[in-house]
Simulated scan of single mutants.
Amino acid sequence: MSCIAIITARGGSKRIPHKNIRPFCGKPILAYTIEAALRSGVFEEVMVSTDDEAIAEVARQYGAAVPFLRSEQTSGDFVSSSDAVAEVLHRYAEAGRRFDVVANLYPTAPFVTAERLRDAVDRLLASDAETLVPVVRFSFPPQRGFLIADGELRLAQPQYRETRSQDLEPLYHDAGQFYLARADAFARCPRFYGDHILPYELPELEVQDIDTLSDWEIAEFKYQLLHKEERP
Results as ranks from 00 to 15, higher is better:
D122S: 14
E87N: 11
E169L: 15
R116K: 10
E152T: 11
V135G: 02
P190I: 00
S127G: 10
Y172R: 04
L168V: 01
Y200C: 05
E162F: 10
P142K: 02
H90W: 12
Q143L: 12
T163S: 10
R97I: 05
S82T: 03
D174H: 11
E201T: 12
D195G: 15
A129D: 08
E94H: 11
Y200D: 13
Q159E: 13
L180N: 07
G194D: 04
G194E: 06
H196T: 14
L180A: 11
E130M: 07
A183T: 15
F186K: 02
A156N: 08
N104R: 13
P170T: 13
E130F: 04
F146A: 10
F99W: 12
S80H: 01
F178V: 04
F178I: 02
R98N: 13
Q177P: 01
P199L: 07
R164Q: 14
G96C: 08
L155S: 08
F111H: 09
Q166M: 05
A129S: 15
P107D: 11
R97S: 09
I197C: 14
A149S: 13
Q143T: 08
R118G: 14
E87L: 10
A103L: 09
L124N: 05
A86C: 08
P142N: 04
R116L: 13
E115S: 15
